[in-house]
Design a protein around this nucleic acid. Structure first.
Lengths: 199, 199
DNA sequence: ACCTGAACACCGTTCAAGT
DNA sequence: ACCTGAACACCGTTCAAGT
């Protein structure tokens, strides 16, 4: 039987294959060739359906960062909701490599901002103040996760001459300390916003 | 005349060539081949003197991130010094690409932490509290700069189907707003630390 | 011992050719 | 129209060969 005249291959299928390779072998293993090979086609269909590698990674990031943020409870104080929003956002972001969460993820972040801005306004903050508070928390969470993920890489294994800087850096930081640091960071920001700093 | 039996080429020369290419053409243009070509040698000497590409980028980052932080003035309040430390750290970090500031830069950051920890202890904070405050500020500044730099990339120029998410994301954020956001972020953190949140 | 040319196994991307 | 094989111009890394 002759094969169909056009491939039954959607952009979503391509993104799914890329995500599968990402989870199995890491971001460095995601290439136009590896994704097309997993789909059993040549690289050309990826270029016609997705564009190029940058667009593929954008689409992968959008997939991973869908439904980032929780919505506010009916009778939840805005401060409690802001804390919950930040912690949930962090745990979702941690599932994606830091290179994907940093570069041009505006669409996903605008979407994640909306429920927080709504919650802050319902809590009594002015529109301008709600946008300011949301930006502050968003940048804090995304930045924290980026540092946290860059931190996970152990010291260089190559035979480079590293300056050891005397007894400093005693094995870095434990996961518990990182969690406590995040909690403290967000709590100070929410407390400060509640106290009206910068208003 | 016969050429010398061994190249007069130090690891520092290699890092300098890589930094020059980085500044002229960006991080993507820094390759083992481009650096060796600029030096007029084959790639082999880079491997024998530096190790591999990861070690080269580590060395480039260490060069760019030297002397990150200012020291405290004699009669400077610890809160004023902390604000100054954060702003100066940010402006130094912004000279390096975000991929270089995030991955495994512990040596440079430990060094930048030392004057702040000293300043905080001189200001009356306990040793544990000074370390906690320093970590908090360091993670906040590095994370902020990472987000700030990822933010600079405009939307994907490829012909990908982007979901535009109705009127959201009105041209992003201006540089003045980013500067104000950083200042607010750090001020809230220092205020919170002064008030004893989490102590 | 330490270099170079050449090679290996990859990339992203595009072209001419097929159906 | 839309695919494939092959190619182009790159990578990081290593090998055999030269001096």
């Amino acid at each position: 039987m002759p094969r169909p005249e056009s491939l039954d291959l959607s952009a979503d299928d391509i993104v799914s294959a890329a995500v599968a390779i990402l989870h199995e072998s890491g971001l460095d293993a995601v290439s136009m060739r590896s994704v097309s090979a997993r789909l059993g086609v040549s690289p050309i269909p990826l270029y016609s359906r997705i564009g190029n590698k940058e667009a593929l990674l954008d689409a992968v990031a959008d997939r991973l960062l869908a439904e980032l943020a929780p919505t506010a409870g009916a009778d939840e104080a805005w401060t409690a909701y802001a804390l919950r929003w930040a912690h949930e956002l962090r745990s979702k972001l941690r599932t994606a490599p830091s290179r994907l969460i940093l570069e041009g993820r505006r669409g996903a972040y605008v979407e994640a901002s909306r429920p927080l801005i709504d919650g802050l306004r319902s809590g009594g903050l002015s529109p301008d103040r709600a946008v300011q508070a949301c930006r502050l928390l968003m940048w804090a969470v995304v930045g924290f996760v980026a540092v946290e993920q860059g931190h996970e890489r152990p010291a260089t294994p190559a035979r480079a001459p590293r300056s050891t800087l005397l007894g400093a850096d005693p094995a870095g930081v434990t996961q518990d300390e990182v969690d406590a640091l995040f909690d403290l960071h967000i709590r100070i920001l929410v407390d400060g916003l509640e106290a009206g700093v910068g208003a």
